[in-house]
Design a binder for these strands. Structure first.
Lengths: 338, 338
DNA sequence: TTGAAAGCGCTAACAA
DNA sequence: TTGTTAGCGCTTTCAA
């Protein structure tokens, strides 16, 4: 392993450790000194021990990021975008995926490793212990995509407004029976989606009974769920589908029922990607604005680090409806009834 | 931030720091001692400083993973799988994505942070400095998916055999003109794919001129490339396509040319996902075995950590051809000629 | 079983 | 501009 220390370099260069440290940190030294130390460092393959440095300076240059799932390309994109922005500030992401770890455990690990900042997507909105421990961290923190006490800085996605506009778009096309499939309505994203969905109906004073909110639990097979829906006595004429798995299931189900898209069934997906945009027909999508999200998170984090500590703020980044080919007016009623 | 130290705990509990340390590390202490220390720790919200610990023990419990692109779901899946396995050994992944960072820079950072091990996908196979610095790390190291000096442990994907079997499958179906689109034939994965592709032709003593290797540079628009190919005088009857972007482009191009899949054009994709499997028709795919890959990497890494240092080995994990609906026999020749 | 003290590699304050 | 040294929070001898 990388064995040589600042002491070794000092001895090799025939100077004191203090001088080596000065060279390392770009402080004032004579050209001769700089040169002597530099050659000694390369000769010894010296790499400064950032642990020791961190102990003295009380800063690790690491930001802990607790993310629901790294394998989700959306979060992958956010990670990349964040990483690039934080790198410019000399910060490195310490990543933990909620797959196989829980929030409190990860938080403890981040605290032990003395991260300088935290970007956290809590896996529970209510666990008082988690909230307490997050407060106890007492450093720059940004809470992502979850409803959380206002004492934290937060970034949220505009699910509610996004779903409202997506739904309104379908209603404007003439759809009346619309189904929203969404996981975990007991968590903030699901609740918000459902709320925006219903708001669109209410705004037009339409019957909320036609607004079909179908909770999609993780265990369920999306294909079967959609099948059941499409084969019910009064099937929906449009579907709003979060995530690739559910969308894929819905497409299979539509095929099984021999329903053409969009003429017999309209579709809106939540979350954009290559697949969705190049599908035939291309899928109309509610897109997460990854770059804006990364910008906002970075902003919120570094403003805390720089001690610009005003009051915590919660910023909502709007989702964007990308119109493509998967929606049209519903089949006319007389076709419907038999 | 988390302020309290082992000293504070010692004072609070009225014992020595050594004793607190012993409790922390589960060494022999009296029940009274354990209890006193435990209550002091919770009262102070104490979280041990792993930096200080690492300095003493010369081990950080961190493994540096340099991955081509976190936003690629394939790597996301590997990250999850690896994380779960390493967690069981008390190790944490320190992740860096090649998007926006280069290998040497990341390696230096990992070395400064004194990672206990390294999983590295070199961004160059030949840079002698990178190789030297990787050697200088001189700790447990696994090189991923790249041809590299045999002095390193390595995991590779069986691209060559995989492509050979995929190609042979198409040849067996009766295809003769087959195009392989692959990025970066100057890098190992691309070279291997091309080699396996050609081997399949050679094994059947077929004309290699019908084996169309089309390098796909990052700048190119896959859709245009495929279009050009399909509109050439002697178009291929089957396509092998790595990655979602290229596959998506090819599907659009096929649609433009009004070629039905698979009856008029057969397709094999490299890399499996929800989209590919639920597409209509479902796409026959060469799949990376994520779990096996993660198992192998973990194995190779921890065997080095445990000092079971035999000779470095390079393990090749076979890719798996998943047969679905996107391939049939090519249109008969007389249909072809006018 | 417990306490005292040295030391991991570095930075920063103080002296020269 | 340079050298000397204390000390960051922990683990780990060595004594008691």
């Amino acid at each position: 392993m990388s064995r040589s220390t600042i002491k070794d370099v000092a001895r090799e260069a025939g100077v004191s450790v203090g001088s080596v440290s000065r060279v390392l940190n770009g402080l004032a030294v004579s050209p001769r000194m700089r040169h002597a130390v530099d050659t000694a460092m390369t000769r010894l393959d010296y790499e400064p021990n950032s642990l020791a440095r961190s102990m003295r300076t009380n800063s690790t240059g690491a930001v802990g990021y607790f993310v629901p799932d790294v394998a989700n390309p959306l979060y992958g994109a956010i990670i990349n975008a964040l990483d690039q922005r934080l790198k410019a500030r000399g910060l490195m992401l310490l990543l933990a995926s909620a797959r196989g770890r829980n929030g409190r455990e990860v938080l403890a690990e981040f605290r032990r490793r003395r991260v300088d900042g935290l970007i956290f997507t809590p896996d529970s909105e209510t666990d008082p212990e988690l909230i307490r421990e997050l407060k106890a961290f007492n450093g720059p923190t940004v809470i992502q995509t979850v409803e959380f006490p206002d004492s934290f800085y937060g970034v949220r996605i505009g699910y509610r407004a996004g779903l409202r506009s997506a739904t309104d778009y379908l209603l404007g096309l003439g759809h009346r029976r619309i189904a929203l499939l969404t996981p975990l309505t007991e968590l903030w994203p699901g609740r918000e989606r459902a709320a925006g969905f219903r708001e669109a109906f209410e705004a037009r004073q339409l019957d909320l009974n036609d607004a079909l909110v179908c909770p999609q639990d993780l265990g369920l097979d999306p294909e079967l769920e959609v099948l059941r829906l499409l084969q019910s006595p009064q099937p929906p004429t449009a579907l709003i589908l979060p995530g690739t798995r559910i969308l894929a299931g819905a497409l299979r189900a539509a095929r099984t029922c021999k329903l053409a898209i969009p003429s017999q069934l309209s579709l809106i997906s939540i979350g954009d990607n290559d697949w969705v945009s190049s599908h035939d027909p291309a899928i109309t999508t509610l897109r997460w604005p990854v770059e804006t999200l990364a910008d906002t998170i970075t902003e919120l984090l570094v403003s805390q680090m720089d001690g610009v500590r005003n009051q915590p703020v919660q910023i909502t980044v709007p989702a964007e409806l990308v119109l493509r080919e998967s929606c049209t007016s519903p089949p006319s009623p007389h076709q419907d009834s038999h």
